[in-house]
Design a protein around this nucleic acid. Structure first.
Length: 215
DNA sequence: AAGTATCG
DNA sequence: TACC
């Protein structure tokens, strides 16, 4: 395992520079292929239908989607109806190295932040169980990330997440409120357009009840 | 409420 | 805090 992680808040571990430039370029190419199969869509808020500024896609057996009827995981793309493409091997390797879970991830949410896109403070709580962590990987422009505690009122800390960085929400931080305040323009040359890709790998179902093989 | 708008 |  590369340099030892920084613990931002209890259970939130941060590995700056987990992927070197060559690995980032290979990952970006992996993702271009995934997005050709599963194009970015614009999620909408439950009830109001308000669009997110972040655009999304997924890979893996399940993908997270949001529309007027609510948040959920589903096996197919909301617009094309096709199954999500598989999770690229390089992402599975990062999960094996960092997640500390015997189970393979079932979902990899792909978030595209164009300059100006934001994500308000929220918890990742649409999974069945929270013993497995959420692993977040960053590519492209640097993001100003904020993480707090399990109550919305808890104090927060900010971290700049740069291209190649890895961050884990585990244990007491698995249900921590977190969000993206802003994307810092012109901070990376990795991608062919300005913006940031964030990848979050998760388990959705309880390990013992799932047919997906351990990794 | 993983959204925006607005105010103090 | 309000919004619907």
């Amino acid at each position: 395992m590369a340099p030892s992680p920084v613990e931002i808040v209890p259970g939130c571990f941060y590995w700056p520079g987990w992927f070197d430039r060559g690995e980032q370029e290979a990952l970006a190419e992996d993702l271009r292929q995934v997005l050709a199969q599963a194009p970015l869509f614009t999620p909408r808020m439950p009830r109001t239908g308000q669009p997110f500024s972040v655009r999304m896609s997924n890979c893996g057996p399940l993908g997270w989607v949001s529309d007027e009827t609510g948040y959920r995981y589903q096996p197919t793309h909301p617009e094309t109806g096709a199954p999500w493409p598989p999770i690229p091997a390089r992402l599975l390797a990062a999960w094996r190295a960092l997640a500390g879970s015997p189970w393979a991830p079932e979902a990899c949410l792909i978030n595209w932040y164009a300059p100006g896109a934001r994500m308000g403070l929220h918890q990742d709580r649409d999974e069945e169980e929270f013993s497995a962590p959420v692993l977040s990987l960053s590519l492209g422009d640097t993001a100003l990330f904020r993480v707090g505690g399990t109550s919305r009122k808890d104090p927060t800390r900010s971290v700049r997440l740069a291209s190649g960085d890895a961050l884990l929400l585990s244990g007491p931080a698995r249900l921590a409120f977190h969000g993206i305040d802003r994307i810092l323009p012109d901070t990376s040359t990795l991608l062919k357009q300005p913006g940031r890709i964030n990848l979050t790998l998760r388990r959705v179902h309880r390990g013992e009840a799932c047919e997906i093989p351990p990794c």
